[in-house]
Design a protein around this nucleic acid. Structure first.
Lengths: 194, 194, 194, 194
DNA sequence: CATGAATGAGAGTTCATTCAT
DNA sequence: GATGAATGAACTCTCATTCAT
């Protein structure tokens, strides 16, 4: 598969991504993707053999780009509290976008695909996020920004709350105010008064 | 609809419930339910017209019975901490059962069905749970069992953590130890040392 | 499946039989049979799940009916030579019908389906035919109609010649005269002069 | 077409031959051959336009080489009986190789392609084999090796038996012993006692 | 009420064949 | 000559849904 095909593959993945955002994972058929990409039925099979495979590759692309975004958005002189707040606001934005997100598709995908740990991108992301937040809180505690006895536990708690907010956003619906309330609760728990 | 039909309807719902527990929501077809119930294809349509409707009625049944269970399991002389712990342990059990639960099916169902609030059973349950926990914490605070400044906020936080644990159990998988850690974190946040 | 369906099943098998006679085995698709039967796509799947299964059942039907034909066509006072000749002429007729026969389909089917011996109808038929012919020759020898030292060997030889004629009829083509020549050769081998 | 192309054509035919031996005729697709040859899809079409044409050319090659083989293997001082035995043993070997042969593919090919006689390689080979065997038997009779009244008829009979054995080997399966039995039967028919 | 045969739409998948490069 | 991406026709198979009995 030459360079040209790599471009097309990428085009398909980006188009499929939109389809997954719209319809979740399960409802999406090869035909949906074929039509969204405006290519031929057989053409898609030259690149991918199932929605499953396509979704996995979409996720891979996603995580690669996510990493870039992360490192970019942190200023050099930012305090731990700044960064945490930035992170939480980013999550909030994502949460409230709702349909315009892969969240639902990702959940649906993992419902059916109990991948071995090493392939579970979701778990990797969760764990790495916990570690980053933990570091952040530790730094904040050292700088006197945060009060916290169990940094790891708090980091984990924050991530589970975020997961809870995410799934709630997709199911029972959630308002910006509700998210703010939770963010505030978290910050207060770290002794941040504002 | 006579009594006989009511019985049959209930039989179908109970059987369908098992199917949903096994396969989630989206994957379940009318055919699956017909076969599980061992009734005729046409027969099912006499009572229900879609898996959607069936699932909604399964949920209704579920919530009716859930209330009963709740009130039963609380002893008269139980302290607030006892009851909270009981609740959390119940949730833990449910979490770890994983496949033997309607959880996944419920999530899948709500992914596609943004029902008006009044019909969103999930939201109702969430809100009512928050209220109960809030009351519980208030009582605990009054009795000197708990330390807590923002009872409502804490109650909400607990529920979001539980949601986060629930969805994590279905997607990235979660161990009993991980759940215990979170429960402990919650209790410590309430000033319970043990 | 009630009586009605049994009738339809039989109808499908009989129709499919014609299709197999026309096109052989491999070329026949479920769609071909659906169209020949003038039923719906899904309808066929109610009765059969593959052309393979259909063909096997066609063969079963075939062999059941074949047995009847056999016993019918033998008169009480027929001599061994009469019966043998009758049999050979029957085979000749079958041979020359060529396209109007399941022969080709059967060969094609067995090319791909190396069934365990007990299910190999073809082998069963071959072996039972050998036995019958052997008996026939023995009887003929006893009656002084035939001259033969190795009845079993001769019976086998006859059957292989017939197989050879059959496959030749389907591939290189064969004339009525050629078949007659072979039949004559066989009879002369048995000392029958005519 | 230059020499280079001729070489490539031959390479394709030899590779395709292996594919046909493995899968028969009908199941083989242009794709199969493209992949086996490790050339481009379009490339194959430069030389051949269908599996049909390819198979025909494979057969042509086959028959050219077959002739060579024949003449090679006969020693100068061999008796007619020797040569006949040699021929029959060669056939036996071929028979028992089963899958490693073009036999099945050839049959499948001719099932669908009722070629005009002049192009029917199979028929040519059959007829020429009959003639050779006839000559052989005549020579044997002259030398006192064989007893035979109808040399042509016997030659034909032998060929049909061989065809019968060949098709049986492909369909109902056949053992080395069964083949030996038939060969012996043929030889005894020629008065060869051993 | 209940049955289950029947229909037809639609998803998945594979290949022969073409054609721009 | 050679490539291989692209197309579209053709097949397989599964279900939601209807309807005569």
């Amino acid at each position: 598969m030459g360079e040209k095909s790599t471009q097309k593959k990428r085009y398909i993945l980006e188009t499929a991504r939109k389809v997954f955002m719209e319809k979740g994972f399960k409802k999406v058929t090869m035909k949906d993707i074929v039509e969204a990409c405006d290519i031929s039925r057989g053409g898609l099979y030259l690149y991918f053999e199932s929605t499953n495979q396509i979704f996995l590759e979409v996720l891979k692309l996603e995580s690669e780009e996510a990493d870039d975004v992360f490192s970019d958005s942190i200023k050099e002189d930012a305090t731990a509290a700044d960064i945490l707040l930035l992170f939480l606001r980013e999550q909030k934005k994502e949460l409230l976008r709702r349909k315009d997100t892969l969240t639902q598709a990702i959940y649906e995908f993992y419902f059916d695909n109990s991948l071995p740990k090493k392939d579970n991108v979701l778990k990797k992301q969760f764990d790495s996020a916990v570690k980053i937040i933990e570091k952040l809180i530790e730094t904040g505690v050292e700088n006197g920004e945060f009060l916290c006895e169990d940094c790891k536990g708090t980091a984990r708690n924050i991530m589970f709350v975020l997961e809870g907010l995410k799934i709630s956003a997709q199911t029972i619906g959630i308002t910006a105010e509700a998210v703010d309330r939770e963010i505030l609760f978290i910050l207060r728990g770290l002794g941040v008064e504002e």
